[in-house]
Nucleic acid binder design. Structure first.
Lengths: 265, 265
DNA sequence: GTACAGGGCG
DNA sequence: CGCCCTGTAC
């Protein structure tokens, strides 16, 4: 037989502002794991009690200047750690890792990069290279592993509403896409795309500044759930919950969800 | 015989932040007139629709740098005007006047004065002198008239929690009290005090910066409803609604309410 | 467009 | 303490 394992990722763009929406979504969807990015709170202000009252464990790492990541889970998480551990800047508010029901989950908020000529863009490319190394040092593509989060990269032309005009945007820049491709080659499957091959217009982010971006579907697919092959093969479905982007005070991103059929026990 | 006319005043300290609280209070209390101060919005951002949906007319004058006044009324207002009209700075965001059901209402947000040695304190004293002249030019103490608002003056020792220590505060300064007394002498009755003579500890403002000011009742009575004698004689009750200061996101002030029995018609 | 930080203010 | 503002980031 086997049990369903439901995973979701959401760039909440302030956990303070989005807490009611997240609690409602958790109650309605009850995922085994929810990965959050851009929580934008220092740890002492993270609303951990609200998650516990909703029946979730939660681990998190934030700071004052933005960023911030968290993993909420129905089962208690094991082997929790934060940041890249290669001797470079650990950037702990951008990476949290936890093992839930035996499955290692890495949740990242990849640096956005500001503009192609800004030092932050070099840092983004370097960060993705360091992340590939991180997977290589800690995991094997032959074993189950989940990588979730806001990757700040749209992998393919199909993943942006205007691939020509956006060619030099930091989230669709050839160098950013190549850096992401290096990680995919290490051994990941794009779980959403596995269930929706060649489907255009499937986005997880719509820029607040673009008028009526959601209605006109002028979006980007920059949030992802990727899995190593032994886990990806067990995926049964994946979807984007656009309704959450139509809520009262929505984030500019929305929820991405994937389901896996796990062996019993 | 006769109908009740209920008037309220509230320094909301940002109409944007306080709108939910105000709408709830209006629904529960249904005053004929609500005078608001420190709306802190330019006119194009005043939430007039929300008042209309609550069944209220509303007139208002605001600006970018703070201040801002409004009069909401169940009946349509007549003779609406803004500011002092004596050739000096009109300061329109500090005075709104409207006639409701035949009763002229002047709603003011008197300048606070910053400190006794600051030019703004001289401006405050001058403003109160100009206001006395304004009443003299437009009205007669022999006719009904209401003056409501944040006067930024506690008239008597009984109206502050520590009259000795606060002697030189701009809101209890002898010169400010004298300037207010000049207006009272023109022909006003302090309606709240008429119904609560010699009652200490009756305040409408508690400084945010004083820890647990409300619980310790370290307040000030600086918000007022004053009436000319023919109207004051018809007042039947007046009270301070401290509950609104215990709400979710309260202002540092609270609502002051007065009721009048008007002749039929 | 939305939310942060930091500074001014009462 | 909790508004305003300005500037910055995405």
């Amino acid at each position: 037989m086997g049990e369903v394992f439901r995973v979701a990722t959401y760039n909440c763009n302030s956990i303070r502002t989005r807490l009611p929406l997240i609690l409602k979504w958790l109650a309605a969807n009850r995922p085994d794991v929810l990965c959050l990015q851009e929580t934008k709170v220092p740890d002492e202000e993270f609303p951990a009690d609200a998650f516990r009252e909703a029946g979730y464990h939660v681990v998190f790492r934030g700071q004052k200047g933005g960023a911030g990541v968290a993993i909420a889970s129905l089962a208690a998480p094991d082997d929790v750690s934060f940041g890249l551990d290669d001797g470079g800047p650990p950037d702990e508010a951008r990476l949290v890792r936890a093992t839930v029901r035996g499955i290692p989950v890495v949740n990242t908020y990849v640096p956005q990069g500001r503009s192609p000529d800004h030092p932050m863009f070099r840092y983004k490319l370097e960060w993705l290279a360091r992340l590939r190394d991180y997977f290589d040092r800690h995991f094997s593509p032959a074993e189950p592993l989940l990588w979730c989060g806001d990757f700040n990269v749209a992998p393919e032309e199909i993943d942006v509403h205007n691939p020509v005009r956006l060619k030099h945007h930091v989230d669709f820049h050839p160098e950013a896409r190549a850096a992401l491709e290096r990680i995919r080659e290490w051994g990941f499957v794009d779980v959403f795309r596995r269930h929706h091959p060649n489907e255009p217009g499937q986005y997880t982010f719509w820029d607040y500044r673009v008028p009526r971006a959601l209605e006109r579907n002028l979006g980007w697919r920059v949030d992802h759930i990727w899995a190593t092959p032994p886990l990806a093969e067990r995926s049964v479905d994946a979807w984007i919950d656009r309704e959450a982007r139509r809520a009262e005070k929505p984030s500019d991103h929305t929820f991405l969800v994937a389901e896996f059929k796990l062996p019993p026990g």
